[in-house]
Amino acid sequence: MPVRPIEPGGVDHRSFRLGEDLLIRIPSAPGYVPQVAKEQAWLPVLGPRLPLPIPRVVGGGEPSDRISFPWSLYGWIDGETAMTAPIDDEVRFAEELAAFLVALRCIDATDGPGPGLHCAYRGAPVSQWDDEVHAFLPRIGDARERARAAAIWRDAVSEPDRSAPVWFHGDVARANLLVREGRLSAVIDFGCAGVGDPACDTVMAWTAFSGASRRAFVHVYDVDDATWARGRGWALWKALIQLDSPDQGSVDLARRTLAALFEEGASGGLRGTA
């Protein structure tokens, strides 16, 4: 069957379409290898319990002279990523994404993989990035905005997760959401999924949504204020990293994320954001 690279090819993994009905997913570096066995073991468990399609494991391959790492074979899912696909109703899109994440975190997490290298430590306390955040804060040139960011971070690290560990996706972004006919149709790339604190899954509130769509996401996702505070920390950490990216698109996203975080503070809280 013909093999065709998928563009954009991804960061953690490289993906190729095999024929019309299959997808090959290969780690791009040794650090992403642990994700292969995790996805192969857990995606068949999670898939039947979720309201939208996720990657379906068909098989896998061993390292060889041509491919250095173990790899996976999935069923092909039609759709265009939400980075480029038109979305008919952003509010409905936000509600359906939040409902998917709620369904995910409600799945029995017994024996699920806790935070570690396999998920880039998503689901662990956000305070793990404390040194990085303080080192990166000077990337915000405006002194008042830098002070706002520091306050957001202080709030994030002062709100520990006291709830039972739950399933999280770990990399909720428009690049990992598929759209068909204007609606959310599938969620892909579970390489950073695991069991722990779901605060990392809140970041779309600031990276992708605004106004009514943000309020809709917040309402349906329905977690406590402490989780939202930790989520702001995750969003801030990622934005500070992206500010130094050579890719202008990543820099622009970082600036929009920071603006959303600062706007929220000025408007009196997440649920009151205009």
Rank of each mutant, 00 (worst) to 15 (best):
F217N: 04
L243S: 09
L243I: 07
I241N: 14
F217P: 05
L243V: 08
D222G: 09
Y221W: 13
V220Q: 09
R230L: 01
P246Q: 13
T227S: 13
D224T: 01
I241Y: 09
W237K: 11
S245F: 06
A229W: 03
A229H: 04
W228K: 00
T227C: 13
V223K: 05
W237H: 13
L236F: 10
T227M: 12
D225R: 06
S245Q: 08
A229L: 03
Q242N: 13
K238R: 14
T227L: 10
W234C: 04
D225L: 07
V220K: 07
A235C: 03
W237M: 11
W234P: 01
L236H: 07
R230H: 02
H219P: 00
W237D: 07
I241V: 12
Q248T: 12
R230E: 08
K238F: 13
D222M: 02
R232G: 11
F217D: 09
W234Q: 06
D247L: 12
A229C: 01
V223P: 01
R230A: 02
D244T: 01
G231L: 08
G231C: 03
D225I: 03
P246N: 10
L240W: 03
L240Y: 10
D244F: 05
A235N: 07
G231F: 05
L240R: 07
Y221E: 11
V220L: 06
A239D: 02
R230F: 05
W228P: 01
A226H: 09
G233S: 06
G233L: 03
W228R: 01
V218N: 06
A239T: 02
S245I: 09
H219N: 14
A229Q: 12
F217K: 07
A229M: 06
V220E: 14
I241E: 15
Q242G: 01
W234L: 04
I241D: 15
D224Q: 05
R232H: 01
I241W: 13
D222K: 02
D222A: 14
G233W: 00
W237T: 10
W228A: 02
A216C: 06
Q248W: 05
K238C: 11
W234V: 02
D224F: 00
L243E: 08
A235H: 03
A226G: 14
Y221H: 11
W237L: 13
A235R: 03
T227K: 00
D244I: 00
W228E: 05
V220D: 12
T227E: 14
Y221L: 12
K238G: 10
H219G: 10
G231H: 04
A239Y: 08
R230D: 09
G233R: 03
L240M: 09
V218A: 15
H219E: 15
D225G: 08
R232Q: 15
L236N: 08
L243Q: 07
W237S: 11
L236I: 03
R230W: 06
T227P: 01
V223R: 13
R230C: 04
W228C: 04
V218K: 01
D225N: 06
D247N: 13
Q248G: 06
L236G: 08
D247I: 07
G231D: 09
P246F: 12
G231S: 07
P246G: 07
L240C: 09
D222W: 09
L243P: 01
V223Q: 11
S245G: 04
P246W: 09
S245H: 08
I241S: 11
W234R: 01
